[in-house]
Design a protein around this nucleic acid. Structure first.
Length: 267
DNA sequence: ACCCAGGGTAACT
DNA sequence: AGTTACCATGGG
């Protein structure tokens, strides 16, 4: 069945192309399709909102959670728009929704992302899914930690992940052993959750904050990549304004997307 | 032949 | 505590 989600703060192109996820692609007709939770769906945009195509009715709560539909983005945009620069970013990129992606997939994806570019990140993740993920209708699920148990860097050679291969193995090992329990992160405050994730070799502040923001929707997580460092130095040398307090991650993502698409860091 | 890419680690001051 | 080379791979 098709489900229309009426929402004025949900732009699928912005949401899938803003760098928070790596497994969604745009078709020639403007639809986006991708796989999450082992289910493949396609989405289309209309003026009232977004249509989820051919989903199983029982899966609706799952997608509502994935797209975080219970969160009021209009209120956050109003809050952030008290600042002039953020108001511009909201105007240009306010259709982004921060997804609640699967924690293990997000962890591995952002380990792969370090010192890397988006096309190659997607390529490595795609090969990981094809090599080790469960075959489903129309593609492959992201492999679970359990499925990757005991994997070695040599096993990952076909991915061509480079120096990140051993980081992936360490993450798999520590998730499976329970040393890093992804299920407990949601209940932990930001700093404690970040330190937990950093027990994994190859996970630093930035990767940890990406996981906490893009999988657990911890809106106070504030990943600082090279782009954000540049834009912070340019626009907010004293730090983000007061209106972003508690939702630094949302502000970060709007700003990140805005400066990447519209420049503004040239001079 | 360079340079960089949604960084992190180890080895230095 | 703050810098810096190096890490594989691929594209410009």
């Amino acid at each position: 069945m098709d489900i229309l989600i009426k929402n004025s703060n949900f732009n699928i192109k912005q949401t899938f192309m803003c760098g928070q996820c790596f497994r969604w692609t745009e078709n020639a007709d403007g639809r986006f399709e991708g796989i999450a939770h082992g289910r493949k769906i396609s989405l289309s945009q209309c003026k009232d909102g977004v249509t989820l195509h051919n989903i199983c009715e029982d899966d609706l709560p799952l997608w509502e959670r994935y797209f975080d539909l219970s969160t009021d983005y209009g209120a956050m945009i109003t809050q952030l728009s008290a600042d002039d620069t953020l108001a511009l970013a909201c105007k240009g990129s306010g259709g982004i929704r921060i997804l609640r992606q699967e924690p293990f997939e997000t962890l591995i994806s952002f380990i792969i992302s370090q010192n890397n570019n988006i096309p190659r990140i997607s390529g490595i993740i795609g090969r990981l899914c094809e090599s080790f993920g469960e075959k489903i209708e129309g593609g492959y699920a992201f492999p679970t930690a359990e499925k990757l148990k005991g994997i070695t860097p040599e096993d990952l050679a076909p991915l061509r992940a480079g120096f990140r291969a051993r980081y992936i193995c360490d993450a798999v090992c520590k998730v499976n052993s329970g040393e890093v329990d992804l299920d407990e992160l949601d209940a932990l405050p930001l700093e404690a959750a970040r330190e937990k994730l950093k027990l994994i070799v190859g996970v630093g502040d930035k990767v940890a904050d990406c996981v906490l923001l893009f999988a657990f929707a911890k809106h106070d997580a504030f990943p600082k990549d090279v782009w954000v460092k540049r834009l912070m130095a340019r626009f907010y040398p004293q730090g983000l304004p007061e209106c972003a307090k508690g939702i630094e991650g949302i502000a970060q993502q709007y700003l990140f997307d805005y400066v990447r698409n519209n420049g503004g860091l040239d001079d």
